[in-house]
């Protein structure tokens, strides 16, 4: 691998630029759509996801909402970023870009090794990294003024259902009967176990959605309160000066650091962490080992 040390050919650079454009373009498209579609309104208001258009379906109309569009844009951005980061990898890291993506992969693998154990779950890296980056970028998208997909219940509930399917798949590894038996571990507590099984995805969805939504609601309330206050206190200033909400400078930005940056990243981390913990604790490792040993013994008997 000696091809690209100092001299990179033009084709490489053009493809590089294309990937970078692919990563940034979806966000710009999202902003343009938002500017074009959002009607002019007085002041600040709390709205849910705006419905762009509806597709007629036989059973029920399918609305295409802001959150759906934005989460697809985020996915495209992540796709472009991944292509850009992994473009032109060499055996020994030579570029900063490669160091960054090696850092990400190493950190994810380390997290998985320390939380799920390396024995069965060492291949879980891509899924966990995908969940984490999707959640983090969806929450951070609010920094450029787009509607956050994670403050829509439906998006996060979809992720929670995916995780629930994964958990159930790993619980079913030792057969369906074993899965059913695990509910009746103390036979008296069966209904409670069933309820807590259903509560897992519900609580995951509510946790993520509630945190992000409460942050945005509080930010909007504070911003509108400051607007009213500055209109009351500084409204006597002549001309345009009276209309500028001077008191809105400062405090909303500090709130945004906590609610958008910190809370969004923390919730992404927690969502991925809970996924790992639920999957690894749902997998019956001991029984799986016994089953494997029994199968191996049966195979040996058959061949002998």
């Amino acid at each position: 691998m000696e091809n690209n040390g100092q001299k990179k050919d033009r084709r490489f650079i053009i493809i590089d630029r294309l990937y970078l454009v692919m990563a940034i373009l979806p966000l710009i498209v999202g902003m343009v759509i938002k500017v074009l579609v959002t009607p002019a309104s007085e002041g600040i208001e709390i709205t849910g996801a705006r419905i762009y258009f509806t597709i007629p379906m036989p059973l029920q109309d399918l609305p295409i909402t802001e959150s759906q569009v934005n989460s697809w844009l985020v996915m495209l951005t992540i796709f472009g970023l991944c292509l850009w980061l992994t473009h032109g990898l060499t055996e020994r890291a030579e570029t900063k870009r490669q160091l960054v993506c090696e850092f990400i992969v190493e950190k994810t693998d380390g997290l998985i090794a320390s939380n799920m154990g390396e024995k069965y779950f060492s291949h879980f890296g891509p899924f966990i990294a995908a969940v984490m980056s999707l959640s983090a970028l969806s929450s951070l998208i609010t920094l450029i003024g787009l509607y956050t997909p994670t403050s829509d219940m439906n998006v996060v509930a979809g992720w929670a259902v995916v995780v629930f399917v994964l958990i159930t798949y790993y619980k079913n590894k030792c057969g369906f009967v074993h899965y059913l038996k695990s509910f009746a571990n103390p036979a008296l507590l069966t209904p409670l176990n069933v309820i807590s099984e259903i509560a897992t995805p519900v609580s995951m969805a509510f946790r993520h959605y509630g945190n992000i939504l409460s942050g945005s609601v509080i930010s909007v309330l504070v911003a509108s309160a400051l607007q009213g206050l500055s209109k009351m206190l500084l409204g006597w200033l002549p001309g345009v000066l009276g209309d500028i909400p001077f008191l809105q400078i400062g405090l909303p930005a500090i709130l945004s650091i906590y609610f958008d940056l910190f809370s969004g990243l923390l919730q992404a981390f927690i969502f991925a962490m809970l996924t790992m913990l639920y999957v690894s604790s749902g997998f019956p490792a001991d029984d799986w080992e016994k089953l494997q040993a029994k199968r191996l013994a049966a195979k040996k008997v058959k061949t002998a």
């Binding site: 609580s203 509510f206 946790r207 509630g210 945190n211 409460s214 923390l266 919730q267 927690i270 809970l274």
Partner: peptide
């Protein structure tokens, strides 16, 4: 985060 769940409900 887990203790927060009831509050978020």
């Amino acid at each position: 985060a887990i203790a927060e769940t009831t509050g978020l409900y």
